[in-house]
Design a protein around this nucleic acid. Sequence first.
DNA 1: CTCCCAATTATGGATATAAGTGTTAGACAAAGA
DNA 2: TGTGTGTCTAGTGACAATATCCATAATTGGGGG
Lengths: 1298, 386
Amino acid sequence: MLQAQKSLIRRIPKLHSYSRLLHQTSKSSTLALATSSSSSYVSPLITSRIIQPLMAINSLNATKSSNAKNDRITKQSYLEFDSDTYSLADDEKIAKYYSSKHDGVERRPYTKEINYLKNILESFSEEKYFDKTDQILKSLSKLVTTREFTDIVNKYLENVSQGESLSLEGLENIITELQTTCQFVTNSRTEAVLLSKVLSDEKTTTTEIKKYLENFEKREIKEILRNMEVIGAENLYKIFDSEFIDLSCIPQELHEVYQEYQVKSSVNQVAGDTLKLQENEIINPLNKKNLSELLPVDSFGLKVIRHSLLGLEPTPESALEFSTKVNEIIKDLDDEQLKEDIRSGKLNHHEVYTKLQTPEQKAAYNDALEHFNYDRQKQIEIRGIEGAKEKWKHDFEEQQKRGDLNLTKGLNAQCYDWLQKMIPAIEKEHTLCKALLENDTSVDQGDKATKKERAFYAPFLIKVDPEKAAVITILELLKLHSTGGVTNGFRAYKSVIAVGKAIETEFRTCLHAQKERKATSQKNASSQLTKLISESLDKEDDLTPFWDNSTRSRVGGVLVSFLMSIAKVKVRKHTPKGLLEDYHPAFYHGMQFIGGQRIGVIKIHSEISKCLTGTSFTESIQPQALPMLVKPKPWASFYGGGGLFTKSGLVRMRDAPETEAYVKAASKRGNLDEVFKGLNVLGSTPWTVNSKVFDVISHYWNIGEEFLSIPPVLNEAKFPSELPENADPKEKLERSKLVYKSLREFASSRSQRCDHNYKLEIARGFIGEKLYFPHNLDFRGRAYPISPHFNHLGGDLTRSLFLFWEGRQLGEHGLDWLKVQLANVYGVDKLSLAGRIQFVNDSMDKVIESAADPLAEDAWWKKAEKPWQALSVCFELAEASKMDDPTKFVSHLPVHQDGTCNGLQHYAALGGDIEGANQVNLNPADKPQDVYTYVAGLVEKRVRADAEAGNEMAKFLQDKIKRKVVKQTVMTNVYGVTFVGAIQQIKKQVSQHFGDNDNEHLYAKYLASQVFASIRELFENAHLIQDWLAEAAKRITKSVALDFGDSKDSEHELHSSSVIWTTPLGLPCVQPYRVHKQTAVKTSVQDIFISIPSGTSAVDSRKQQAGFPPNFIHSLDATHMLMTAAKCGEATLNFASVHDSYWTHAADVPVMNRLIREEFVRLHTTNLVQILKDEFVERYKGCYQKVRIPNNHELSKKIKIIKKAWATTLQRKITIADELYMERKRLQMLESEKPEEVEAAKSMETTISVALEYDCYGLVDSKAASAFEILVPLQFPEIPKKGTFDVNLVKQSQYFFS
Amino acid sequence: MSRIASTAKSFNPVLNNVFEKTVKYSYGRTHLRDPEACQKIIDKLDLTHHYKPNNFNIIDVNPGYGLLSSMLNYELKPKNHILIEDKDKCVSTLTGMIDELQNKSNNDSFELYKKDAYEWETYSDLIDKDKLISPIVQPYEKVNDDLLIVANWTGMRDESIIAQWVGCCGNRNWLMKYGKVRMVIFVPALSAMKFITEPGFRKRRRTGMKFSLFTDSKLVAITEAAEKTISEDYKIEDKESDEEKSLRGSSSNGGLKIPVGLGYDPRVLVRDQPPVITKAQYFRNADFAVIEVIPGDHTSNEIANIEYFMSSIYVTSAPLKSSITGVAPGAEYLLKLIPKDILEKKSYELTNEDILEIARAYEEWPFKPSLEDSYMGDFTQTEAYF
DNA sequence: CTCCCAATTATGGATATAAGTGTTAGACAAAGA
DNA sequence: TGTGTGTCTAGTGACAATATCCATAATTGGGGG
């Protein structure tokens, strides 16, 4: 077993593979250069006097590189090494970089390993496997900085100090030992852990506490107490009680709490601001007793608490508290009926809220609800999984009782059955894992491979409760039904990762909840203190890093394989011999081939998939993916916005450590406050569900037929008739195409139906609720709601379901804006504002009809371009028009203001094109300009010219160019659509509108080129900027860093600089397009292919180039949005956005419109491109670029001579690495303190230095027959001149956003 | 610009100095440049007994610059010799050759058909629409003596065509509806290694199995192995381990005494004794082989029911008994129906008889998945975005 | 106890898999001259 | 070394191929000192 243990420990860090890498590269070309005979590669042009110092430097380098061998972590795994031989020198622990040295963004070597170690340290420390934790800590101490190590150890100490098993002495011993063996440096947090340990001991007397505290100075105590989440509420009060403590010992943030406590305890009444209820057991997920008590909520005399999201009832305590508060609020209502309605639960939260009369009542209700929802939110996040289980159990028991064969219920019962079988399997696995980790040889671990696998996932698997793990596995697999292009199944890869991720999320949530509970367990803790503590808990950043994908897939793999082996379904088959009955696996594994490539799939047994089609399965939504009931935690650091117990990063990214590092660094420097501000405005907008629209949707949904955007219920795909085996291959081919087409259609219809179903189910659950969307960003800074299924970014149908929770009186202009909104969604958005209002006024009776009878066969709203949103406005308008004074109408409807082709607006502002600015409404005008129509006109003009020139195609297309044909292409042009993409878009239009299908491809191709040319003509300067951006990206991504090939940093590939820029709000954007290496992870299901994230692998130059211009523009529109959001927040507007569509209350539209314009002007009055260029120059200095100069130029000759000289001394070809090495040496010597070295450097010539005297970019001549490649310092082209458009005019442009 | 002149037996002296010795465009395929090499192939094929002069047709797919075609034509004297070729440079050389023949020897059997040989339509048009030839349907009991197909499919992406043609042999559709039509195909060496195998050879996979089942295939000629596939520490070993090692199909230290033939199933080499074409004899540095494929006695009907099953079986090289379980729900039942000795075998060891046996057993299986279950969607293609 | 060598294991890289290839232009890499 | 040829991949959010073999580095185990 020792062997297995060693193997585990060895395999986990996988350090030796890295060391091998190091070793290999240390033998590679550059080092060979360094270690070869000393003077050989000095240019013959250098006199012997100068060779001396060079030799010295080189031999120094040589000894260093021979030392490099010792960097290898060889032999014993690094849990066992005990000397400093393998440690990273202090400067090496952080002294690495990503794309640029000049950004102060550090890259740590072995990040992956360190993260892994942190994770297993966490795991082992809770299990108290001290022998292992010791080793891990030793290893870590070699790899991280002292400071970080202190943090790690503190966290470790916190974990191990829990419970009784370790005494204070034991803890102190550990610390002392770590101090000696690992150079552990304590800080105040360490003291806090110790203090907490002292205080937690029941036997510790007050005198002892005092004595202990007296060891410290008051200033020190203050620092210690800052770590309140370590100490915990209960202990904090004990400290407050100690007579040794006075205000000077208390950190600022706790002053209030302290003083309050002093007052209260003087009256001998401890922190009584919470309700005196039974023992506070909020977080006890598995307490069944608790659940049965949940049912009689109405016994509190208030049924307001109606909805139980995910089948979870609120805790009785908080329900009682809430009902008490509500009773208090409605006490003074004079409307008895309303009072009764509220009490009896007839009204949902939002109805109650709107019906309250005074602002004070509303505020009080809001307050009470927020408090109540906080508890519910906790319940959802922590017990959401359990909710699903309870439902299954319920259905299972029902079925047992009644023999009910209802399909959905049957499925739930089936799940319960699987769950019951799976739990013991996982429990058994847990014991095996623990045995493995404890070196318990008495347990049989099975064959070698299994054992090896287990060694990988054991530390993680044991952290999650078997029941929860089982529920999660079942849910995730069922959720994946028919995804990934697999009929009746899913990709094995996806399932394994999904389960792994879900398990991790659950684990993290539990961990966080547990911590918070521990720290705030004191039943009488003041709410103020509780809040402070949970806030400081959020600050723990990177001590439990995210699991990497290989870990996820391993954990997921084992669980999926369990489910696959235990989940059975009963099948019956009539055969000639009679009825056969058998149990078949519900899931089975297979391979699919796509273009010869294997894809692992897991198929769901048809009996099961039958139950799954079309039915709702809402329980399968991870609770963390739902909108929130309470205001999200405000963003203040990289982690911490979003769910209460859910860790989500500020920027969503897929395997992009570089992006992460840059954003984190920016966050730490405080550069992101503006971004946070904007995001927090978005996150704090409360919403509710539009129940009127919901009812209508629900009606049509249940009919099951296709209606507007609702897809029909399809039961099975229709296949064309079979062909005989010997049919012509051509026919066979045609048929199989048809089969795939119909399968594809079926799948897409089903997945759409499924998607809608999710949304509707969630909407149903949130009717009457107050909900929030925490937002985060993509790497360009665009904001997205974190909850993926149901949010306001969705399509027409989804958007129509949203209302602002708060209402605002329409006031003077509000009604008009409502009308504009209706006109916009109806498709009448090309008229002037007055025209749009007139349009609605003319249709007012139809609007009212629509609202009164939305289900009418030919209701007016159904003909709208965006019918559902139109319906939503109809309801609102109809209500408003009922009022005598519509200005007093309280409106909840969000009114949208959309930019006309927002990307082009930014381009036009950047480029200053007058005509372009006109067409996208930057320039004030009487009525909105339509860029699509304009471009269509330009295209038409070109086509006509061609037609006259005799082009047949042009003759055919003449007079057929409509707005619609070019619209999508114009729109996506900004977003970097390629020529091919444009062809596809236009082809679709062509095939719809023109008769001739045979030539549609030719037409599309021709038109696409004309559209491109037209756009280019219209936005000439803008396109020059686009070109400039692309050229800059090209140069950056093709550049070589001076340090390339340096022995100290061998990880970088040749081209490893990605394009990085900073938005005006300070958010660094790093294009994450790199070529990722991929490896296969063996799991018991199959091998799983995962890519290894790396910030240093070669950049994907093509993607970087293609992506940069659109990404830059996106980052600008995102910036504009966040700026506007922040301003709207300041103006106390409710604000929401869908990238370039900004929403607020009708009454507030004028204010928002002003802010939108002001912020746009503010953004564009600086010369953004110039700033970008300056930033680039600074960031990429020290990078070199290949330039082709004429072969016969004297510079070419000079460089050839130098190269030849080097090559003869080195006996091999000169590589780029060699050239850079020599240049590096030259520059180093120039900085040297020794004058002779400086002298030597001055007269030394390298291939790069000789080129410095020439204007190499000027020498580039594309026409020259033969070219020679040389390296020159990276330069950027001059930025194109701006046009004459004055951005300030935007302020007066009514139709800029409208 | 030197041109080819040769005294090879099948070389038409009329064509001396018609073909260029080097060609500029390979169009991604290998072309024979040496009449001696062509002669080797023609001799090995030994087709004169099978086809009566002036009484049969040749469909010559991708003849390239036409050297081999001209020699085959001279040797076999077909009534019609259709050259399906659409590459410009090739076409011009071919027309030159045809003109030369017509002018100097009154041979008008050649017909150039400038279409893409990849398209199925090309063949149906050739026969049904343009009626250049009208092949006679002959029974499957004997090899068709009315039609001969010669094809060069040595390009990178041509392997799929070969596989599909074999599929047609199984289906007996396409040109195979005329009977057992002989095909002489130039293929990449690696394809020949995979496809022309006997049971037990490690590289034998599904398509290899189909070759065995649906066709009688032979290796006609091979090339010298390209240098990179030859292991440096190549050693001559004794015969037994020789046999074993080369059965594994490993390309590094195979057991033949000379590097030529490395990577092929040694039993096939012994069986077919293919002559070797040297590097200098062809243009474009890519190994190839010439194979002869004649439709066999089995059809795809016989194994249609286990298509999906087979694809799963050939994913792994584990013995059937262990790989069979995950193949479909309730596959355990199937274990009872298949003979034990077959279950012990690995997928690449299965013989034709074994496969047919499995197909029969599968038919007996009460829980065999319905047909639509075997449809595995492939809709990864990006579809429209509104 | 360490050192050295042989044997074993881990790991990354290469290659095959199936079997129509919906489309076109342009950039880029390998290869033939 | 400068050419023609073949291959690859094409907007964003966001979605990823596996099995097997082989060479070689790393580790272990055994033996001798």
